[in-house]
Structure formats: structure tokens, C-alpha cells
Amino acid sequence: MKAESTSSDQRPLLEWAARLCPDSPRKRVKEWIASGRFYLDGEVVTKAGLRIEDPGDSLTMGAPDTSVFSWVRRKRIHPKLTVLYMDESLAIVNKDAGVLSVPVEGQGGESALSILGDYLNDPKGEGTRRRIFGAPGKVMPLPVHRLDQYTSGLLCLAMNPDARAHLIDQLRKHTLLREYIAFCDGRARAESGTWRHYLKLDHAGYHQSLYNKPVEGSTEAVTHYETEHIFERHRVTKVRIRLETGLKHQIRIQAAAEGLSLVGDRLYNSATRKAVERKGATLPYGFRRQALHACTIGLKHPESGKELRFESPLPGDLKGLEERLD
């Protein structure tokens, strides 16, 4: 680190640091110094009053030898959304059931995409934006894939168009790992296996139709499953599912077609649907949404090529369901 000298050109570190952040209040820059965000000759400096000569390029915000800063600490940025990981290319978030993945025209409510965008673009997030993206300008997260509104768990969002293209290419090549835990009415025909069907969306883009053979306008859906536990008394099966393709409602409609309708599914589980239609009826096991949780994401980083893997434990409502079934 540069040694202090008796030169008349000495000034407090805060003054030099403020020049690197001309759009930020000095009070905020001082807080950043204290939190260890500034480096002098590659070493952290935390004393805003440290008097030094003009440091030139040796004073940086963020470690000078680090090309990609990543946020790897869990942080709940909203009552229903937690960030597990974020860097200049992508973000992995864990959403609660009830939150949309992306905004849907004509459908109100917050989405994971908008919540993350609002958090990063809030004036209070300027330090985070600078540290991760190198500039204070607005950041626009982009969708890579989606989860149904009432499915909980992990979602990958891209932070720039190039990264999104790389991640979607991984989806198309089936190299982006997506695993789920589901609680299903019924028992599987085998402990593990693969479901292969053809799905076709209606003109409204909401309801899927399932076929055993290809029909005009249909797309093949491939899902791999493995039984994790059978709750004999209730005839419910806990299943780990890995998507190969990722079509709308794919897991829900394929599971139903295989005699394993998801507990709480109001669209593809006839028992739940009938209970919803009967005014005042109790939903099976008192569970109010489809029992599906996106528990694992594995991918190759768009920039570094590093293999990344993220896990999400069962949320409270599914833990409660599992306890009731036991």
C-alpha cells in the first residue's frame, strides 16, 4: 500500500474516492470505504480520513484483479423473493408460491423479474450496481425460463442479452439442469423412469392438451422422475423430477396423465378441482396450491464456463404437508 508522506499534496482518502464516484453523495462514499469496497495498491482500505497523495489508478472501487464480482450471499430482497447468487451475467433467485416469474399482460401482481429490477434500480442500490455491473445505470433483468405462479423455488434470470442467449442455448440443448420435488396422489408404475408425451397449447396460450403421439402443432415433452418416498397411508408419492424439455405446465399435466396428479393442483387434479367447485369444501390435506418446488438448478456460466449448481430446500408449506402425510 502507498505509504503516507509529508507532501503538501496529501488529501483524505475520501476525497480521492469521491472522484471515482462523482454521482454519489460523499456520505455514501464514506460508508463504502468503511465497508471495505475500496482498494489501494490491491489492498483494502477502510479509513476515509487516511491522508495520501494522488493515488492515480492504484485506487479502485472493488478488487482490481477481479474481472467478475459475484454476490454469493443469500439476501431476501422482498417478503417473497430471495437472491442466492448474482453477477454481471445472471441471477439465481428463490421465489415463494404466488409470485409470477415474469409480468403477464392483463394479470396483476408482482413478478420475480420486476422485484429484482426494482431492487437493483432503487437509488439505495447504486453501490450494488456499481460493484457488480461497473456503472450506476439501470439494470434490466431478462427471463431465461419460468415457473408457474404457484410453484415455488429456483429461477434463473439473465442480466444482459448475450448471457441470456447463452443460457437459453443451454436450455435448448438440455444441458441446464432443472430438478423439482413434487407430492403426487397415487403411485408410480415404476420407481423411476421417463415420461414422453406431446403437448399442444390452446389458442389462448393457457391450457395444454396431451397426446401419446405427435399431432399438428404439438411439441414433445420429456420428463425424468424418481420416487423418493411413498406415504402408504394416504397413497401419496414424493417424487424427484428432472426436466429435459420445459413446456408450459409440463410436469403437472404429464404427472396427471401417468396417474400421479400433483396434490393441490386445481387444473389437472380432479379431486382438488371438485373440492374447489364445492363451496366451503376442504381442500385435500388442507393444501392450497400445487405441491411442486423447483429445488435444483445447474448450469455453465455464460462468461467463465464454470459449472454452477444451486439448491433450495422445501419451503414451509411443503414441509408442513410432508409432516401431515407422515
Rank of each mutant, 00 (worst) to 15 (best):
E4P: 03
L13W: 03
E15S: 05
K27C: 05
R28I: 06
K30F: 13
S35D: 08
R37A: 11
L40Y: 06
E43Q: 00
G49L: 12
G49W: 09
P55K: 07
G62N: 08
F69T: 09
R73H: 10
P79W: 08
L84E: 13
V93W: 04
K95L: 06
K95G: 04
V99E: 11
L100V: 07
V104Y: 10
G108H: 05
E110T: 14
R131D: 15
M140H: 13
G153T: 00
A158T: 03
A158P: 00
A163K: 08
R164I: 00
A182F: 09
G186C: 08
R189W: 04
R189K: 14
G193F: 02
H197Y: 14
L199Y: 01
L210K: 07
N212M: 15
N212S: 04
V215I: 13
T219L: 15
T219K: 12
E220W: 11
T223A: 07
E226T: 15
E228D: 08
F231M: 12
L243Y: 02
L243D: 01
L247G: 04
Q250R: 03
I253N: 04
L262A: 09
L267C: 14
K274Y: 01
K274N: 14
A275I: 01
A281T: 02
R289E: 06
A291K: 09
L292I: 06
L292Y: 05
I297V: 06
H301E: 11
G305A: 00
E322Q: 13
E322G: 07
E323F: 07
R324E: 15
R324W: 10
